[in-house]
């Protein structure tokens, strides 16, 4: 495998890892292991949640570099695990470039859960967390329906390219309006448990965990990046729900 193929494959693997929600430590570790497997321990790797640069030198000391800019997250921890397995395979077997590219293609086309299952999971999560925070079964039913609304809205917003902050504001605002409307019509006496249960689906769990793990490994730029993301999403949730409730609470 020559240097151009190596940098190309490394950049693609890194892009997929970052896109599917791996922490930056894992990306740098994986890529440096792959480079070492092909006798390029001098490889320079720079990874943040938004971009990736790799440079290796060939036998005439000519640098060969490749870079990727990453936008848009698509959390898929199953594929992160599969890429992890692939990197173990690369390090032990040192296969040719074509084999790796074929396996990467297989991972990219791995089945995800069908939309029906994902919608059901949003319904179940909304209901279960409404009960978890002390709601009644009827409130849990409405909490589940609000979870469906959140998933529907975030798919639509992702299609037009909205940021995570805007997504959080719009979804939590819509959910709060609906919850207040449901309790105003008179199905259930209170609306707070439904809002809490349904908006748990938007809580920045992935960002918070990744930011802690980035700080531990000393990637402060990536840590601050993801921490800012987590805080902004939390603020967005509060702004959305707060403005909706404040608008209605006067009546």
């Amino acid at each position: 495998m020559n240097e151009i193929q190596l940098t190309g494959i490394c950049a693609e693997i890194a892009r997929l890892l970052i896109k599917y929600g791996a922490e930056i430590y894992r990306v740098e570790d994986t890529i440096s292991r792959i480079c070492r497997a092909y006798d390029h321990s001098e490889a320079e790797i720079y990874a943040t949640p938004a971009n990736f640069i790799i440079t290796v030198k060939d036998k005439n000391n000519v640098p060969c570099t490749d870079s990727k800019s990453i936008s848009g997250r698509d959390t898929n921890l199953d594929r992160v695990g599969k890429i992890n397995e692939l990197s173990r395979f690369i390090c032990s077997e040192k296969p040719e470039a074509e084999i790796i590219l074929k396996k990467l293609e297989l991972i990219k086309n791995r089945k995800t859960y069908s939309p029906a299952v994902i919608y059901t999971s949003y319904f179940v999560a909304g209901g279960a967390f409404t009960m978890f925070f002390g709601g009644t079964p009827l409130e849990a039913l409405f909490g589940g329906i609000l979870g469906l609304v959140i998933h529907f809205l975030s798919i639509k917003l992702k299609k037009v390219g909205a940021s995570a902050f805007l997504n959080a504001v719009v979804c939590s605002m819509a959910v709060s309006f609906l919850a207040v409307a449901i309790s105003y019509i008179g199905f259930v006496p209170r609306f707070d448990k439904m809002i809490i249960g349904a908006t748990m689906a938007l809580a920045p769990g992935v960002a918070l965990t990744n930011c802690m793990r980035d700080f531990i490994s000393g990637d402060f730029i990536s840590g601050i990046y993801t921490l800012t993301e987590a805080l902004l999403i939390a603020v967005g949730l509060a702004v959305g729900a707060g403005s909706a409730v404040a608008a209605v609470i006067r009546f």
Partner: peptide
Amino acid sequence: LFSFIGCAAFGVQYNIRFRH
């Protein structure tokens, strides 16, 4: 029980396979 069910549903959203 509720946290088990809710977290399993979250796991499906993150595309974690059944065993994990």
